[in-house]
């Protein structure tokens, strides 16, 4: 083992780490927004909304992420739409996570007793404020553990975007490995960084959960 290789290339690895975090955050942001729309569409969009939502969710959860990514990156140009690597990466992560996030939201919304919405309706709340003040705050609290879990999964999945050439942590460790001919150290360093980020995320999740439980 020669850890010199890692310390010398640490700036690059950290740059890759920043990229990994940025792409994952962008992906989960897209996923949250899309996921919320899909969830609301499935619940209050009638039979058409329900069917479309179900097909969407089963496609993006059923097709491997790498295939989705390559579909966007290699296949769209073949039909005339050019996609830069970073856009393809965020798009693929966002689309995939939106399917999971919409299911998380749906599960938490269904877990809120019917009586809450009915009571608010009886008290004269408008539909918009029922969602905003009664249902969504509770749904959010219920969904925090699952969302943190999803974020960790997404962070690990983001290693796949190295395939389209985005210089994130896995890609950088790959080039460190090949330029120094020390793959063992390079990939162990990358693994350690992923482990640290995921540990921090899990800790953050516990803190947020505790905070929400207190209020």
């Amino acid at each position: 083992m020669n850890w010199d290789v890692v310390t010398r290339n640490l700036p690059y690895l950290l740059e890759g780490t920043v990229m990994t975090i940025a792409v994952s955050l962008a992906g989960i942001l897209v996923g949250q927004v899309l996921g919320a729309f899909i969830c609301v569409g499935r619940i209050s969009g009638g039979r058409v909304g329900e069917t479309l939502g179900a097909v969407y969710v089963s496609f993006f959860r059923g097709v491997p992420l790498l295939i989705q990514l390559l579909l966007i990156y290699y296949m769209l140009p073949l039909v005339g739409i050019d996609v830069p690597p970073l856009v393809a990466a965020v798009g693929a992560l966002g689309l995939a996570s939106s399917a999971y996030v919409s299911e998380i939201y749906r599960g938490s919304l269904l877990a809120i007793p019917h009586g809450h919405g009915e009571a608010a309706l009886a008290l004269g709340f408008s539909e918009g404020s029922i969602w905003r003040r009664i249902l969504l705050p509770q749904a959010f609290r219920l969904s925090v553990p699952a969302l943190v879990n999803e974020l960790i999964l997404l962070l690990k999945a983001s290693s796949l975007i190295s395939v389209v050439g985005v210089a994130e942590l896995t890609r950088v460790s790959q080039s460190v490995a090949s330029s120094t001919y020390r793959p063992l150290e390079a990939y162990m360093a990358a693994g350690a960084i992923y482990l640290i980020i995921n540990g921090a995320l899990a800790l953050l999740g516990v803190l947020v959960e505790r905070r929400l439980a207190r209020s």
Binding site: S159, P183, L195
Partner: peptide, 11 residues
């Protein structure tokens, strides 16, 4: 469980 599958494969 905390590291990506791809990194494990490369390793």
């Amino acid at each position: 469980r905390g590291t990506p599958f791809l990194v494990q494969l490369f390793l």
